[in-house]
């Protein structure tokens, strides 16, 4: 076969009639634009309340003393408590895009939270829980923030890490699911580990070796035992 130079134009028979040739690409672009706008308007009208990721919309209704306020038929033994402050419990769940997990331990109006993607991004956050169930937790050093509302046995909100914002829902977590932490010195390095055990039994964790984060080995949720670099450590439940 003869190799034609790239500079050669198309053979004429590939050209469509003049009208189509001139407007076809414009119609293509226009169609894409219209499709994008239709999808954006669909998102804008149905987006916030009805989430495709399965987390329910946060309920703005404050906790009421009547248990009948929640019409769900689920056999959940957690009636919304009448007394403020917020009930003592652990909460764990995933971010909306399921890329990371969030666990929050609430005790006597104080909360400590851990956000972790199981690879490199993590943050520990602390703060107070207001009587209406709202909280704003911050990391130390500063850089990450978690805002959430505790209502109906779950915490919904958003957590902001440097360069990343996640929405999340964390449901009440019963042991062994919850939030665990371990600190130790292993062969000269300062090792800090954080784990979130989700209600479905899955867990994510990050080990910091002298501040260098990496995926953590699994802990035994019953005992907290974990082996890091050949050293046996015990991860303990975190309380604020």
């Amino acid at each position: 076969m003869t190799v034609r130079p790239w500079t050669r134009a198309f053979p004429i028979r590939f050209h469509c009639p003049v009208a189509t040739k001139r407007s076809g690409p414009l119609y293509t672009l226009l169609a894409g634009l219209v499709l994008a706008l239709v999808m954006l308007s669909l998102n804008a009208t149905t987006g916030s309340g009805k989430s495709s990721y399965g987390d329910s919309a946060p309920s703005p209704v404050p906790p009421t003393p009547t248990p009948s306020a929640s019409p769900t038929a689920s056999p959940s033994p957690t009636p919304t408590p009448s007394a403020s402050p917020a009930p003592n419990a652990d909460y764990a769940g995933r971010t909306a895009d399921r890329a990371a997990s969030v666990a929050i331990a609430v005790r006597d109006g104080k909360a400590i939270a851990y956000v972790c993607d199981g690879r490199t991004k993590e943050a520990w956050l602390r703060g107070d829980v207001a009587d209406d169930g709202t909280m704003r937790l911050t990391s130390s050093p500063k850089g990450s923030t978690l805002t959430g509302t505790l209502a109906g046995g779950r915490i919904t909100g958003a957590v902001e890490l440097p360069g990343r914002t996640w929405k999340f829902t964390a449901a009440k977590a019963v042991k062994p699911s919850g939030l665990y932490r371990a600190t130790a010195r292993v062969s000269g390095a300062k090792v800090e580990g954080g784990w979130i055990v989700l209600p479905d039994g899955k867990q994510v964790g990050i080990i910091d070796r002298d501040g260098e984060p990496s995926a953590a080995p699994s802990i035994d949720p019953q005992t907290g035992a974990v082996t890091v670099d050949g050293e046996q450590l015990t991860a303990k439940p975190v309380v604020p």
Binding site: C16, G24, T28, A36, M39, K121, G163, R164
Partner: peptide, 27 residues
């Protein structure tokens, strides 16, 4: 022409979701 149009129109919803739900990220 038509494979290009189809490819483009398949890519648009993906981009809309990316930009709407995730935005421009560098993490």
């Amino acid at each position: 022409r038509w494979s290009g149009r189809i490819a483009f129109l398949l890519a648009v919803p993906v981009a809309v979701h990316c930009l709407y739900a995730f935005g421009y990220q560098t993490y």
